[in-house]
Amino acid sequence: MQPIQEQLASTEEELQQTLVQLPNLPSALVPKGNSPEDNEVVREGGAKPTLYAGAKPHWDLIKEYDIVDFETGAKLTGSGFPLYKGAGAKLQRALVQYFLDYNIEAGYTEYLPPFMVNEASAYGTGQLPDKEGQMYHMQADNFYMIPTSEVPVTNIYRDEIVKAEQLPIKMTAYSPCFRREAGSFGKDVRGLNRVHQFEKVEIVQLVHPTKSYETLEEMVAHVEQLLISLELPYRILRLCGGDMSFTSALTYDFEVYSAAQERWLEVSSTSNFEGYQTNRMKIRFKDENGKTQLVHSLNGSSLALPRIVACLLENNQTEKGIQLPKVLHSYFGKETIIK
């Protein structure tokens, strides 16, 4: 019997390793398509600014205003690790605080998670085995630097049965994010457009499975109002099947318009994972009949800072300084960034 049991265990392990390579099934709402060109524009908002003659892209503005130093960041660590200073560092802090306050007011509980996770956590949210090459891995301890606070925050309830009356569970967290961005090159990565370390505020919800798509629309509206408050021109895209992540059932991307670069920059993805992540993490609840079911998980960027900062600098530049949106005045302590 022993050889048969060993063969069964080996077969089950082989089956499990095959199953984890499979992506989530897309929702029926997902547009058909294979590339970003096939994504569906849901709506646009805000007015694109008209810049004065001589306006500059943010990679020139950060040098002119002496607020982000890529050269010293490269000396300290390597290419793609910016060093924020003076008004640049203060703007980062102001944005993080505003985003957290905005989310807390909407009923999210704030967390400050570890910035490294173990293999089980990275597997639970789908970073492993899909994005293994995109994460910084510390082999001595087998820990991974987080690509987003979604990973530790969603894993808070791993291997737990929550009470139905606890749902929805709404969580928000600030963290630095670390991404190797292997293979990135070209004009799209200049300045703050694509970096290896950046700051982001995330929102995560665990909800009853019958409520997840209603919740997704609420989260999209929540992020949209945040962009409106920053007075940035934006558009919302429903991603096609070929442009969605490994773990998502339906994703909306938010892009803001960079007037100096004359292009749209992604600043948030808001997704419904249905039971894909929670099946890996075994996050469950008991329904009214006492039956154990998986909760559904959702998350969204609220917001990622680098491209928000890039667009704030570019779209609000004047000959006398960079005018900040009104909502940030009390957080930053001034209305204008001056040289």
Results as ranks from 00 to 15, higher is better:
Leu25Arg: 09
Leu312Pro: 04
Val309Ala: 04
Glu40Met: 14
Phe70Asn: 00
Gln16Ser: 15
Ile161Glu: 01
Ala120Leu: 09
Val309Gly: 00
Tyr84Glu: 01
Ala164Gln: 15
Glu266Lys: 02
Lys48Pro: 12
Pro57Cys: 09
Met244His: 02
Leu324Tyr: 11
Met138Cys: 10
Glu132Trp: 02
Leu237Asp: 12
Ala28Ile: 10
Glu181His: 08
Ser269Asp: 13
Val327Leu: 13
Val42Trp: 12
Gly126His: 02
Pro233Lys: 03
Asn155Ser: 01
Gln277Pro: 12
Gln97Thr: 15
Ala173Tyr: 04
Gln277Asn: 07
Ala259Pro: 06
Ser35His: 14
Leu312Cys: 04
Glu40Gln: 13
Asp101Cys: 03
Asp159Ile: 00
Ala221Gly: 04
Ala259Gly: 11
Leu76Pro: 04
Glu13Thr: 11
Arg235Asp: 08
Val267Ser: 14
Arg179His: 11
Ser330Lys: 10
Glu231Trp: 05
Asn118Tyr: 01
Gln2Ile: 14
Trp59Asp: 13
Pro209Val: 05
His196Met: 05
Met135Val: 12
Gln197Leu: 03
Pro325Thr: 06
Cys177Arg: 01
Thr247Met: 06
Ala249Thr: 10
Phe254Gly: 09
Ala9Tyr: 05
Ser184Val: 06
Glu335Ala: 15
Ser330Val: 05
Ala173Met: 08
Pro3Trp: 03
Arg93Gly: 01
Gly107Leu: 03
Lys286Val: 07
Tyr123His: 14
Asp101Lys: 07
Met1Tyr: 08
Ala221Gln: 04
Lys75Ala: 00
Leu227Gly: 13
Ile337Glu: 06
Glu224Asp: 00
Asn272Leu: 05
Gly191Phe: 04
Thr125Pro: 10
Leu298Glu: 06
Asn193Tyr: 12
Asp287Thr: 12
Leu237Trp: 13
Glu14Phe: 07
Val207Tyr: 09
Lys90Leu: 14
Ala106Pro: 07
Lys326Gln: 15
Val327Asp: 04
Ala249Gly: 00
Met145Leu: 15
Tyr98Gln: 04
Leu265Tyr: 02
Asn39Val: 06
Met171Asn: 05
Val195Arg: 05
Asp141Ile: 03
Thr72Ala: 03
Lys32Pro: 04
Ser27Asp: 04
Tyr52Asp: 07
Thr154Leu: 15
Leu167Lys: 06
Glu274Gln: 09
Gln134Leu: 13
Gly321His: 03
Glu44Trp: 02
Ser35Lys: 14
Gln317Pro: 07
Ser330Asp: 13
Ala140His: 12
Glu231Thr: 13
Ala140Pro: 06
Gly73Met: 04
Ser271Phe: 09
Asn34Phe: 13
Phe178Ile: 07
Ser27Cys: 07
Tyr331His: 08
